[in-house]
Nucleic acid binder design. Structure first.
Length: 503
RNA sequence: GUCCCCUUCGUCUAGUGGUUAGGACACCGGGUUUUCAUCCCGGCAACGGGAGUUCAAUUCUCCCAGGGGAUGCCA
């Protein structure tokens, strides 16, 4: 029975294009997607662009780009179409007034001609608003001034062109509630519900509340999964469903995502736009995996899950009720895990855009650069935290490094003269070995170090600095094998000269 | 202020009416190692408080506290 019901499940992600896609919103989208997939349902995108002043096409484009990159997409939406379109609310404009008027006709809503002083308040300094709130008389919000206006008069004033909004009549007494799929029964006394919220704004556009209820119903949405910050608006939605005589969808309020200070995740805490994560060099699989684990867990002891795994395993009873803190360090660990799971060819493909941006290779890379990247891939795979770390780590393979400060060459307890000696020995050794034969090269190096009475690390450090320009690099012999012995020797010669000159 | 939601290591979490309360990240030690990293081993560290139910409560109930969210012609 439940199974059958789920077969028809329709869920939606309903963002408003007023900003870059936020990691928290994307998590909501993901949970909806996973729920749909887990029960064989349909995942729908609906654009809630009813705020004319803040909505923008650049954010719509960012939305599409983001989800194409993430690799999970909607079955119905503005760009892919579907049976209950249009899926963009501004294209459904007429629908909302129609429905708002219907409620007025039913006596469940009313015209309001009060000036928009509430709206203006958002421009006031925070402190003044706080004082105003503190001084507010008993009750809160709108004072229901127009609620009892004679309907005939209201109708006359509105048709004469007087600016107005339409407000929902919240019952003065009684109780409204619903059964949350995750949280259980939640109820309010109607006296505590936001008094008579605006349904239709004076510009004729609907507010979120109206558009959301009308469209969810018209689009056959069966389950609404959204963040817990929406809980307080649930009763007014329920009152609207009741007023329309519609069956409400099942509601499930997801735990919120916080920053480390316990507040709603925001820019102050670090990257929040998915775009920022992409540019920083996170893999989409890592981001999805991490975000799916926020407030959720599946098999004890397992933390790596693919999108397919999650689609199969998702279930509301694995979701936690408490908010989760977004831990950038743990996300970084996930990213490292996923980078290491890449094949060499895949890693090359993923780091190439970053190499191009850093002007280290051509766009597209030529054959030789391609070969170098492929040879270097296994050397850096377990060293990268982000794809964006690649240019710095691989720079020396494409450009001769500037001569580092001489002190960088000098091992502990060495002086420059002795360093020059060690470097010369290492340099000469390069000419006698085949660096592509790693074991033989290492054996020869050990023998040489022993012969000189120094540690292998001390023999290699000056050479490493000469060849790579830094004390920290991928494994030296393999790096030289990719770079080419001739270049390595030339860099060593330059360093030797500098060390001797300093003596 | 009012309403609503939440509460296991620093963080993400597992878990049960009787457990040495488990794992992961982070952190700290140690090992492997040509640097760094990876990898391996070990360590640190939690049931918010108070009542009640019970032979027994981290687990069930209630209260409190703390945290968060909402209180817009933004979503």
């Amino acid at each position: 029975m439940i199974q059958e019901c789920h077969m028809k499940a329709r869920v939606r992600y309903a963002p408003s294009p007023t900003g870059l896609q936020h990691i928290g919103s994307v998590r909501t989208a993901l949970f909806n997607y996973l729920f749909a997939r887990s029960v064989g349902g349909t995942f729908i995108l609906r654009l809630e662009d009813t705020d004319r002043t803040r909505s923008s096409d650049v954010f719509v484009k960012n939305l599409y780009d983001t989800f194409k990159w993430l690799g999970f997409y909607w079955d119905e939406g503005p760009d892919v179409g579907g049976p209950v379109g249009p899926y963009t609310q501004s294209e459904r404009f007429a629908l909302y007034r129609e429905h708002a008027e219907r409620l007025v006709g039913l006596g469940k809503a009313y015209y309001c001609f009060c000036a928009d002083d509430k709206g203006a308040r958002k421009d006031e300094p925070e402190e003044e608003r706080g004082e105003a709130d503190a001084q507010a008389p008993a009750g809160f919000g709108y004072q229901r001034t127009c609620r009892n206006m004679d309907p005939a008069e209201a109708s006359r004033r509105s048709s004469s062109g007087e600016p107005h909004v339409i407000r929902l009549k919240i019952p003065l007494d009684g109780v409204t509630g619903f059964d949350d799929l995750l949280l259980g029964r939640i109820e309010w006394k109607n006296a505590d519900v936001n008094p008579d919220p605006v349904l239709l704004k004076s510009d004729g556009f609907p507010t979120y509340h109206l558009a959301n209820v009308v469209d969810d119903h018209l689009m056959g949405i069966t389950h609404v999964m959204r963040a817990q910050e929406w809980i307080p608006s649930a009763p007014l939605h329920m009152i609207m469903y009741e007023a329309f005589g519609w069956e409400p969808p099942k509601l499930c309020h997801l735990p919120m995502v916080h920053g480390e200070d316990g507040h709603k995740l925001s820019k102050r805490h670090g990257a929040t736009a998915v775009d920022e994560f992409r540019k920083k060099g996170y893999l989409e699989a890592a981001l999805i995996n991490y975000v799916a684990m926020l407030g959720c867990s599946y098999e004890d002891g397992r933390d790596i899950f693919s999108l397919d795994d999650l689609s199969r395993l998702f279930s509301i009873d694995h979701i936690n009720k408490a908010p989760a803190v977004f831990d950038y360090a743990k996300l970084e660990w996930f990213n490292g895990q996923y980078i290491r799971m890449l094949s060499d060819a895949q890693l090359v493909e993923r780091i190439t855009p970053f190499m191009i941006d850093a002007s280290l290779v051509w766009s597209p890379p030529n054959e030789q650069e391609e070969a170098v990247l492929l040879g270097a891939a296994p050397l850096v795979k377990e060293r990268l935290k982000y794809l964006s770390d690649a240019p710095e780590a691989l720079r020396f393979l494409f450009l001769a490094p500037e001569l580092p400060p001489l002190s960088d060459f000098v091992p502990k307890k060495f002086d420059t003269a002795r360093t020059a000696l060690a470097l010369s020995a290492a340099r000469d050794l390069l000419l006698t070995v085949d660096v592509s034969n790693h074991d033989a090269t290492e054996a020869a190096s050990r023998a040489k170090a022993e012969e000189l009475g120094i540690k292998l690390g001390d023999l290699l450090l000056p050479l490493r600095v000469a060849v790579t320009g830094t004390r920290v690099s991928p494994p030296l012999f393999q790096s030289i094998a990719v770079l080419g012995t001739a270049k390595a020797v030339a860099r060593a010669d330059k360093a030797i000269a500098a060390l001797k000159a300093a003596d």
